[in-house]
Design a protein around this nucleic acid. Sequence first.
DNA 1: GCGAGATGACGAACGGTGTTCGACTCGAAC
DNA 2: GTTCGAGTCGAACACCGTTCGTCATCTCGC
Lengths: 247, 247
Amino acid sequence: MAKSEKTWSAGPLRIRVTTDVPESAPRERLTRERIVDVALAQMKERGYEAVSMRSIAKELGTGQASLYAHVANREELDQLVVDRIAALMPHPEPDPERWDEQVVDFLHDALAIYREHPGSARAAMGMIPTMPGALRNAEDLMGICLAGGVPEQYASWACDMFALYVGAVAVEEDIWADRLRTGPEGRSYSEEAVVAAVREHFAALPPEQYPILSSLAEVMTTGTGEERFDFGVRLLVAGLKAVSQRS
Amino acid sequence: MAKSEKTWSAGPLRIRVTTDVPESAPRERLTRERIVDVALAQMKERGYEAVSMRSIAKELGTGQASLYAHVANREELDQLVVDRIAALMPHPEPDPERWDEQVVDFLHDALAIYREHPGSARAAMGMIPTMPGALRNAEDLMGICLAGGVPEQYASWACDMFALYVGAVAVEEDIWADRLRTGPEGRSYSEEAVVAAVREHFAALPPEQYPILSSLAEVMTTGTGEERFDFGVRLLVAGLKAVSQRS
DNA sequence: GCGAGATGACGAACGGTGTTCGACTCGAAC
DNA sequence: GTTCGAGTCGAACACCGTTCGTCATCTCGC
């Protein structure tokens, strides 16, 4: 049995009573780490929108206010979440011979990690990398580009752009996933169903007003997310090569 | 003087009384257009986050519930806002000789319009173009690329990517603008102050862990938003040329 | 001219959000 | 032993999007 103290005051009086209490909850101490753990788990399970200070506190068996002893606010929590998953990135050794393929792989890895942790992308939006995890990745990506002979200025701007692109793709996929999750009336749509619907919508447009969109409906809705992303990444790398050589 | 009718029922009785009322409020009828007008104005003035169904209703001198007679929900309102500003885009005649410059100009115009209407970019996030305004722009951009000889499949994916990039840049600038607006303790920071702070932060990193970031702090924080965006756009177009010719 | 029905307007409320306040508990140091 | 500060937490505040039921007004058929 453990002891529990209760104190209360009535006017100038202070009364204290000690009672015995069943040794129930070892009551693991709240820490930043545990809070971030729960936030990540909930994002993965129910989507970014479903995560709130309340839901986190509830799962930890505590009150919302307790969280604020460890985390300044929601924004800082988001930063911590992002930094946590940023730390999952690999750290390839720059190889000047195949720097372009290394960049492609790096970006694919980044998207894969975003995908493994749904919701994290939205937390990362508009965030300047200042925490260790994100900084490490920026350093690595810059290293690859510089090793490949990309001029410093171009490498700087391009890395910025790469991060923006991967983030934007991840956010879009995430918003989409949330919408599918909360499909109208229970039974959530499948991804293919949505793509098919968009294709039909394009195909059904009046050809006199939208000759291209209506006739290219098929082409425009072709490709999995993976294929489209790969195209984008290779386009970026090809572009960086082109503008680098030109100078 | 106008007439005002008041009806009420007491049990089975229905009583109606007509009174004269001062012709005060012409009480302009609520319409989608007026709602969108106010939403846009408020976004411009106080940022995306400050706009709510409540704030719109208040400015229109009505209750929140009234808005829902004209707009299904917040998401539809956002769509209408986006469609409104999408209609502001010019419609250039495709010129095969200088299709690349046309794409560059088109994207610059798009960002300029996002900038003129702060907040609109965030409303556009994750939105599949289905309304007239956005469709028109997709059609135009596709037309320019196809006229330039870009293969259909590449043009489709690239246009998608262009829109994503412009949107992402606009959203980032917007989040930033909101943060500056709500600067810590009244006096809002200037943009230069933030850039300088980031530069110092990078420069102050431990060189043994972050040799590149710490030494390139200056280069990485160089360039106005406009210069960086222009670099990105030209990189994209160069990339599209490269992958197109390769096939 | 009058009654009935449709439609728009709207106050109040519901369940959610992030955040703050003040009271409380409790372990460790003096 | 007592004090003190850090951690805990219930309750509340000010928001948010949305819905309900009621009321006002306008239009149409008679």
